[in-house]
């Protein structure tokens, strides 16, 4: 296997006396579709926050394309190609859909026309092209999720971390988002999917990691994870109990 695109080594994070994460280690290969699952409070969001730079891990290192990025601020990691969407979409209100995408593009050296073309292309790729000039606050829930993805894509990332991009959507809407994510992956973007919706994450991922109380308890193909007794105990057990 060639050098991983993203590599997490012995990363841990505590909040006061509570250990939220780790130590965990994982590698992500270029072009991979990785799913991360785990019950609420298992450390998924803490892990992404450490990877994207919103938390500084207490221990361990994170490297991206061979470069140690553990201490880089979030915006520098984003410029290197590491992007994420947020669980709860917060569009920039008071702006149109396309304006939401133009915010990120300013640091690039490209011309205004290029930026606009790029933004329009991303809107097309997520299926929001016809909503281009609508105020962001008038979008439907599905469209908001798409805008959230589009915004994460505006800086042309190499890795997209989609944090529960489908929570609360209908089956048809989930299919819609999944096809957008499949298309992105085909275009070369490495996708890390954090998701509670089991069938979606199993359908999408090539490899799945299961976290529980801040530790990786299982890792492997979707089939292997689905049939893993330890995963069934912490995860599916919890779900069927509900």
């Amino acid at each position: 296997m060639s050098e991983p695109l993203l590599s997490v080594r012995d990363v841990s994070k505590s909040f006061g006396a509570i250990k939220a994460l780790g130590p965990v280690g994982l590698d992500v290969a270029e072009g991979e579709r990785l799913g991360i699952i785990g019950p609420n409070g298992s450390g998924k969001t803490t892990l992404i926050n450490c990877i994207t730079g919103f938390f500084r891990p207490d221990t361990g290192t994170i490297s991206y394309k061979g470069q140690d990025i553990t201490r880089l601020p979030a915006y520098r990691r984003a410029r290197l190609g590491l992007s994420r969407s947020f669980q709860i979409p917060h569009p920039f209100t008071g702006m149109t859909v396309i304006e939401n995408l133009l915010v990120p593009m300013d640091y690039g050296a490209t011309s205004a026309r290029k930026e606009l073309e790029n933004a329009e292309e991303i809107l097309r790729s997520v299926g929001l092209a016809e909503r281009r000039d609508h105020p962001a606050e008038q979008l439907s829930q599905l469209e908001l999720r798409k805008l959230e993805l589009a915004r994460a894509l505006a800086a042309r990332p190499a890795i997209l971390i989609a944090d529960e991009a489908m929570a609360g959507l209908s089956e048809a809407e989930i299919d819609d988002i999944l096809s957008v994510l499949f298309e992105l992956n085909r275009a070369g973007v490495t996708v890390i999917m954090i998701e509670h919706i089991m069938h979606a994450v199993m359908r999408y991922s090539e490899r799945v990691i299961c976290l529980e109380t801040g530790q990786v308890i299982a890792e492997g193909s979707p089939e292997k994870i689905t049939s893993s007794p330890v995963v069934q105990k912490v995860y599916f057990g919890e779900q069927t109990a509900r």
Binding site: Y75, F92, T93, A155
Partner: peptide
């Protein structure tokens, strides 16, 4: 736009590669 966006959601702005 970034000035108006940064007040709204600093994290979303930094994910986009803009130093808030």
């Amino acid at each position: 736009l970034a000035i108006r966006a940064v007040a709204h959601d600093e994290r979303a702005v930094s994910v986009a590669g803009v130093n808030p």
